[in-house]
């Protein structure tokens, strides 16, 4: 998309209302604080640094998306936050307490559908509640409320394999939220869905988030998705993964898909394009030897 021809405002320009919202947001408690986080893997070619010196904070009820080129360690980052992987250096604080193991205070929605196939939708959503010691009746009642929230009450007694991809992810969201996490970690949750379902799911997620006291950290490789959902976008660099820039999205809330063409949206989009696809890379990518194919094309044209 070449937006350079239009007179776009700087992506840093914020309306009064948006500025006020960000001021308010920054006054809220810090839920998640990541400081000097680093991760090094051992490989056969020696150690590989996936993340280095990552610093950021997430405030209560904030929606943060994380974006970056492939290999920037976004998945590693979210797995560390979830406690599924250890840190090499640095610290992760959740509500001021260090975390290094998985726990129900950090809910997670994975890209692959990780619903338990042997449990019905309702039993899946009850899983976290039962682990926390809720009785069967209470967990069941609570689970049904969450299933209602994602609009799947008709499917409460159905097994996950009978659901479509989008429905599965809605159940996964309900299951994660039912365990009452302080932050919801989402690792490219809509990456496997078709475009139409994905945009529906984005609206769903925003709607749910608007009505709950929940903080979201959302990983994606889709630039539009990153802007559409976020208060702030964490842009990562690759090799090693580190925070390149944190963008405050100036698009007002509540969001609708119509905003995809608003100047604020496009300027953020342009900035992301610059950060994620530096000009040098795009130019060299087209240097292919096409001579033979071109000749075949010309022959076909001549026959017509």
């Amino acid at each position: 998309m070449n937006t350079a021809n239009f007179k776009l405002p700087s992506y840093l320009t914020q309306s009064e209302a948006v500025k006020a919202r960000f001021d308010d947001l920054k006054r809220r408690d810090v839920i998640l604080e990541v400081s000097e986080l680093g991760k090094t893997f051992e490989s056969i070619n020696g150690p590989v640094t996936a993340l280095e010196g990552v610093n950021f904070r997430v405030h209560r009820r904030e929606f943060v998306t994380v974006i970056g080129p492939s290999g920037c360690g976004k998945s590693t980052l979210i797995r560390i936050l979830a406690g599924l992987e250890s840190t090499s250096t640095g610290e992760v604080l959740l509500g001021g307490h260090p975390v290094d193991t998985p726990g129900p205070d950090r809910g997670m929605v994975f890209q692959g559908y990780t619903l338990f196939p042997w449990l019905t939708v309702k039993k899946n959503v009850m899983f976290g509640l039962r682990n926390q010691g809720f009785g069967d009746a209470e967990a069941s009642r609570e689970a049904l409320e969450w299933i209602q929230l994602v609009g799947l009450e008709k499917f409460a007694d159905v097994y996950p394999d009978e659901l479509s991809g989008g429905m599965k992810q809605r159940v996964a969201i309900a299951r994660a939220l039912a365990a009452k996490p302080r932050i919801l970690l989402m690792d490219e949750p809509f990456g496997a869905l078709d475009a139409q379902t994905r945009s529906k799911m984005q609206s769903y997620l925003l709607e749910i988030w608007r009505h709950l006291d929940i903080t979201v950290l959302f990983i994606t490789h889709d630039l539009d998705e990153a802007i559409y959902l976020a208060d702030r976008i964490l842009v990562l660099d690759a090799n090693p993964g580190r925070v390149n820039e944190v963008i405050e999205v100036a698009v007002p809330r509540p969001r609708t898909p119509a905003q995809f063409l608003q100047p604020e949206f496009l300027s953020a989009r342009q900035r992301l394009d610059e950060l994620i696809h530096p000009p040098s890379v795009t130019e060299e990518a087209v240097a292919l030897d096409l001579s033979r194919l071109v000749r075949e094309g010309e022959q076909t044209d001549a026959q017509d």
Binding site: A82, G83, G107, M108, F116, W118, N131, A176
Partner: peptide
Amino acid sequence: ISLLEAALTLGANRRQLLFKVVIPG
């Protein structure tokens, strides 16, 4: 393995992992 990881993020302890995820799985 992602089923085990999902269970961990839902607060399952080791015993629950074995009896509520591994065995039924």
